[in-house]
Simulated assay, not measured.
Amino acid sequence: MKLQHYLGGLEGIDSEPLNFEKRVFVEPWETRIFGIHVAMMGLSKHLNKALPQYPIESVPTKFKSIWTWADLRKGAEAMNPFDYFRFRYYEKWLGGISGFFVQSGYITQEELDARTVTYLEKTNTSLPRLSEPAIDDQVIDYLHRGDPAIREVNRQPKFNAGQKVLVKDVPTTDHTRLPGYLRNKTGIVDRVYEGAYAYLCSTGADGLGEPMYVYSIKFDPKDIWGEMAETNSWVYADLFEVYVEAA
C-alpha cells in the first residue's frame, strides 16, 4: 500500500472525473490474466506448508516459485506512480506478472517482446492450449480449499477491546498493509479477532510474516482529517498487531 496504491485521505490526486467501472472484466484477455494469477497461486511452492497441506511436490509443474496475492500487490506497488495511474486494473496485473516471470528466469525479456510482437501483428494467432490433468486438479482443489491464514500462537493478544493505541509509522520497502493516512494516529481497539493470522509473505522491515493477532481499531475522523471530517461517524480499520503500540 504505497502512495500510488492506497490513496485514502489524499486530496487533489485526480485531474479528471473518476470512472467507476462496474464490470468485473472489460476486455476478454482480462479473464485469461486472472486465470493465470489463480493458477500461479494454486501451484505456489509455499502451499506444501499450508493448512491443509497440498501435495505440491508431486504436481508435474515447471512453476517452482512462491506466488500469493501479496506478490501480485508488490508488483503493482513497484510500478512508477505515473504508469500506475495510467493503466487499468488488469493492465497492472499483466505488467506485474510479466515482470515476475522475467525476473524469475521463466522467460527472457527478448522472448517476451518477440511473442508480444507476434500477437500484435497477427491478432488471429491461436493461443497455446496445453493440458495436464494433475495440474488442473491441483488448481481446482486450491479454489475449493484456499490457503487458510489462521494459525495457533502460544501467547495472548497484547491489547484488549477498549484500549487506546497508537498506530506506528513503520518503514516501507516492497509492501505494507498499513494505510498511510493512519500512521501516527490514535484510536481505540474495538475488537480483537479470534486466532492469529499469518500474512502471505514477509515484508521485511515492515514487520509482517509471522502469525499475529489482528485488531479492529476505531478512529475519530477529526483526528485524521481535522475539521473537514464528517460528524457523527467513525473510521474502522483492521490492523496487524505489529502496526500498533500502547498509546
Rank of each mutant, 00 (worst) to 15 (best):
V165Q: 00
K158L: 15
I140F: 04
N232V: 00
E230W: 00
A134V: 13
S104F: 06
V189L: 05
Q156D: 10
S126Q: 13
E30N: 07
F100I: 08
F87T: 08
F100C: 05
V189W: 03
T125C: 04
V170M: 05
T123P: 05
L47T: 02
V165H: 01
T173E: 14
F82K: 11
N80S: 08
F100A: 12
T186G: 01
P28F: 03
L3M: 04
D137E: 15
M79N: 06
H46C: 01
F87R: 12
G99K: 07
W29T: 03
F100G: 06
S98E: 06
N184A: 09
D136L: 08
P148N: 13
K122A: 02
V192M: 01
R88K: 11
F20E: 09
P179G: 13
T173D: 14
V192K: 00
A134I: 12
V170G: 03
D83I: 03
A134Q: 15
N48S: 08
E27T: 01
Q138H: 04
L43A: 01
E77H: 08
V167K: 10
Y197P: 00
P133V: 09
E21A: 08
T116I: 02
P157H: 06
P133E: 10
R155Y: 12
D147N: 15
T176G: 07
N232L: 00
S202C: 11
V102M: 06
K92L: 14
I33E: 07
G187N: 06
V235K: 07
S104Q: 15
K168Y: 01
E91K: 04
G95K: 11
Y84N: 02
G180M: 10
E111G: 03
E121K: 13
K185P: 00
W69N: 13
N154D: 15
R88T: 13
E16A: 09
K45T: 12
G204Q: 09
T172R: 09
A237I: 12
E230K: 02
R151Q: 13
G99I: 01
K92M: 09
Q156E: 13
Y54A: 04
G226C: 05
V139I: 15
V235N: 10
W93K: 00
P60N: 08
K62Q: 07
N19R: 10
S202E: 15
F219R: 14
V167D: 06
K222C: 04
P81A: 02
F101L: 15
M228Y: 10
E27M: 04
K122C: 01
D223N: 15
K164L: 05
